[in-house]
Write a protein that binds this DNA or RNA. Structure first.
Lengths: 110, 110
DNA sequence: GAAAGATATAAGTCACAACTTATACGATTG
DNA sequence: CAATCGTATAAGTTGTGACTTATATCTTTC
């Protein structure tokens, strides 16, 4: 499943927003999502699976609980894709800072 | 249709990549996409409609032809959403440049 | 002005993703 | 060790979005 497909679902986007605040157990995520979207526990669990499989989230076991965290890698890919359009609104001075960043990255490589 | 759903389709992403280079007629887009994805002209036209309806593309008439351009607005929204995760990979000096941009924007408002 | 060109819409088909309920399964607790 | 908790998987249903072919609607050209 492509990164953009993963982000296409509002529930998954919301889960990522929650994880952006820090590590959360499956059950805690389920609580919030059920309140906001009225879907079943398995539905949430399936979304978590998609997030795992697509690399957006990592899990670790803590007893019976599963603790989820964001994995930045695919988000960074998405950011890179969108970045190619940044010039369309990033005129003037903002573009300068962007160039600074880009230039710095290039220099790192060499 | 939500912005991320629009970007979920590889054909639409490719069309936006093409439009990023500049204005293109429907027919020119069809040519490229057909070569790369082997889908019919109406299929491409329907994707163009989605891009129009969701605000990612603008059209103007030129005789019988329709000339398409990128509209940055929804892409900027997407960028803003992804931006909230930028801290996850944007450590160190890169973050500085980002902060410069953010700071500048705030100052513009006030 | 009829034919051909450029593009869009209509209508129908089909695969798939997002649910549901039911259940499995390891960890915890009394 | 039986009951309960926390979470995941299985299996089935269903709505929808991405196609297809056929056709409509303007433009241009001869």
């Amino acid at each position: 499943m492509h990164a953009f497909d993963v982000l296409g679902d509002p529930v998954r986007r919301r889960i990522l927003e929650l994880l952006a605040e820090g590590e959360l157990a499956s059950g805690e995520i389920v609580d919030v999502i059920q309140r906001e979207f009225c879907i079943s526990q398995p539905a949430v669990s399936q979304h978590l699976r998609v997030l795992r499989d697509s690399g957006f989230a990592n899990v670790r076991a803590d007893g019976a609980r599963r603790l989820y965290t964001v994995d930045a890698a695919p988000l960074q890919e998405v950011d890179a894709w969108v970045g190619r359009f940044r010039g369309f609104w990033d005129h003037k001075l903002d573009a300068l800072a962007t160039e600074i960043v880009r230039g710095k990255r290039k220099r790192k490589k060499s």
